[in-house]
Write a protein that binds this DNA or RNA. Sequence first.
DNA 1: CTGTTAGCGCCTTCAG
DNA 2: CTGAAGGCGCTAACAG
Lengths: 383, 383
Amino acid sequence: MEEETELPERAPVDGNSYSFRSAARSGQSTSTLVAVARTAGVDPSTVSRVLRDDPAVRVRPSTRERIIEAAAALGYVPNVNARSLVLRRTMTIGLIIPSASNVVYDQIIKGAESAARAAGYVLLLTESSDFGAVEAAYRELVLGGRVDGLLIGSGNLNDSLPDVVFERSGNCVVLNRLIRGPMPSIIEDDERGMNIAVARLVELGHTRIACLAGPADVDTATRRLAGFKEGMAEASLTVGQRYVERAAFNEGGGYEAMRRLLSLPSPPTAVAVSSVIAAVGALAACHDANVVVPDDLSMIAFHDAAIAGYLSPPLATIWMPLFELGEAATKLLVDVINGKSFASLQRVQSPEPRLIERKSLAPPPPEHNTATARATARREPAR
Amino acid sequence: MEEETELPERAPVDGNSYSFRSAARSGQSTSTLVAVARTAGVDPSTVSRVLRDDPAVRVRPSTRERIIEAAAALGYVPNVNARSLVLRRTMTIGLIIPSASNVVYDQIIKGAESAARAAGYVLLLTESSDFGAVEAAYRELVLGGRVDGLLIGSGNLNDSLPDVVFERSGNCVVLNRLIRGPMPSIIEDDERGMNIAVARLVELGHTRIACLAGPADVDTATRRLAGFKEGMAEASLTVGQRYVERAAFNEGGGYEAMRRLLSLPSPPTAVAVSSVIAAVGALAACHDANVVVPDDLSMIAFHDAAIAGYLSPPLATIWMPLFELGEAATKLLVDVINGKSFASLQRVQSPEPRLIERKSLAPPPPEHNTATARATARREPAR
DNA sequence: CTGTTAGCGCCTTCAG
DNA sequence: CTGAAGGCGCTAACAG
C-alpha cells in the first residue's frame, strides 16, 4: 500500500537560479475593460454593464455573447482597486483576532467567512492581541479604504478602545467582548454555559466545586465566573474560600492554577475550567499529583474541541455556538456598513450551549478517600 | 483578590436599537490629499511628496511642518486603492492555508507576518484546503489586483495546480509543498527531522520501530516517511511488514492508526508519529489499550507545540523551524514580486531541527513483558 | 438600448 | 524647489 508519489529522494536544493519575470509581473491582470471592449467592438461602459449584470441594461444577446467571449478569451478580471475607488466600497471585511491557532477563534473565523461569502464579502484576517494593534488596523484598514468594516475580537477590558476608533466609531463590531460605548458588540451567553457546567457537577453530588477562571481583565472570563457563581448560588452552595483561581487561557496557566487548587488543605472534588486549553494543563497537573480524574476529581471545560475527546480521560465540555457567533457578528457588521439599524448589544442564543458528556465526570469520592488522596498528592514533587 | 471589572450582572440584550450612521459611513477616510493641501496652502503633489518622504524633494522646513500638521489635524490616511491603482502594487501579500487553527500553520503565519511587515507588506490570510480554492484565490486576489503575490500552503500532490496559476505562474510561492514546474517552492528538511527521531529511538535500543505517517497524497507526509526509511536503513534496521501506517493528520487519524499498530501480532516497541495532533490520538489509543507509554511503547512526534508538554506522558517531539519557513517564503515571494532572481527550490536549513526530549521515550521493554502486554491490549474493547 | 463624459484619490512626468 | 496636468481602471450619470 505504499504508493509513494514519485519525488526525487532528496530534491536538489538551491539549484538553478531562475530569474524569469512573468508577464503579469506587477501582479495585476494585463487585460482591462477597454481591451475587452476593443476586441468585442463595443464601448467600455457597455462591457462594464454586461459583466456586472446591470439590470438597467438590455443589450441584444449577440452583443452580450461577444462581450462574454472576449472577456473569457482575454482572461479578463476586473481590478478591484479601480472599482473600490469609484464605488467607495471594497466588499472586504477585516477580522482582527489575538491568535488564529486557537480552537475557539477557528470556529469563529469559519462562521465569519461563511457569512461574509454569503453577503458577497471576503475576509481579511489579521492577528494581534492588543488594542494598540486594533488602532493601527483601524487606520490602515478602515481609514485606508482597504476594508469596509472591522470585526474586532482582540483586546481586553482594561485597555481602552483607541480614540480614533471611538470618535469615528463606525463600521466596527466588537466580537466576543463586551465594550462600553456606542460600538455594537456581540457575545455568547457565557453565563448560561457555565450554569450548565455547574448544574451537572451539582447533579453528580459535588459540593466542593472550584472554578479555574481566566484572567481578570478578559471579560469572557469574568462572565464565565459570574455564571459559575450564579450556578452555585442557585444550588445553594457556597463558593469555597480559595476555590476561584485566575489563570491564563493556556496550558501553563491551567497547570499552575490546578496545582494551587490541589495543594489546598481541603481541595475541591470538582472543577469547572474556563477554557479547554487550560484544562489540558489542569489535567496534566492532576496526573503529576497522582490525582485521578474522575475518581478523585471531576473536571469539565468551557468550549468543545476535537482534542477533548482524546485526552486522558476524555474531557467533558460545554459546547458553545462559536461558528454562529462569527456568522452573527458578520451579519451585524454588514448591517452597520449599510447603515441599517441594529441592536447595540446582542447575544447569540441559538443553538443553545450544551453539555458534551465524557469520562472526566463522576460522583465525588467518599470523604475519607479524598482526604488520603490529597495528602498523597501534596507530597508529590513538582513537575 | 476578586477584582471583577464592573459590568452589568447580565447585560441588557437586544435593547435600544441604534441606527446611527457614522460620518465615515463608506468606511473611507473623509479627508483627502487635496483637503490637506488646501489647509496647508500648498499643492496636492507637494503634500504627496512630503508625506511619502520622497527623497527627490527638499521643501523648506516650515512648509513641511505645515503639511504634517495639517495632515495630523485632519486625520489624513492615504487611500490605498487610489495608490495601488497608480502604483500597480498593493503592498499586500496573500497567504492561503488549509486551516489557521493548526499549531504548524500558526508558526508559519507568524513568521510570514513578521517578514511581510519588515518588507513593508501586510498579510491577507485566506483559509482553504484544496487547489480549486487556490485557483479562485489566484484570480480574485492576484489577477484582481488585491495582492501583489500569493503564498500557497494548501493543496496536495495529486491535485494539479490550476492552469491559470501555471500559465501566468507569476507572483506565487508554494510553501511547505514540493511542486513540479516552474513555480518556486520552499520546504523544510522533513527527512532530516525524521532521521533525528529514528536515530534517537535506535539509540535507546529499539529495533521494532513503526512509523505513523500522514496521508499518501500530502508530500510532507511522504518526505517524512522517506526520512524514516532512510534512518532505519542507516541503522541497518528493516522496516517491519505492517509498521507503516498512513493516517489523517488529526486526532482521529492517529487514534485509528495506532489501534491498528497495537493489534499487530508483533507490535512495535516504538513509534515515530508524523504530526503532534495525530500523536494526541495515538496516545489516547495507547491508554485505551492499556499500553503504557513509555514503558511498553516509546513515542515521538513531528513538530513541537505547547500541548506536547502537557500530555500524559509529556511527549517528545522534533522541533522544526516553522517560523523561519514562513519568513523565508515571504522573503522569496518579495524577491519574485520585485523580479529578482531566486532559487527555484529552497529548503530552510537553519535553525536545525532538534529533538525535544520528554518522558514518552524509554528503552524497549524486555521481550516477554511486551508480548503479554500486547495480548492483553488486543482484548480491550474499542473506545 | 448604447456611447460619451466626468471623475474616484493618488502619483509622476513635466514646466515654471 | 514647487505647481499644473494627465492618467491608473472602472462606474455612473447623462445624452443620443
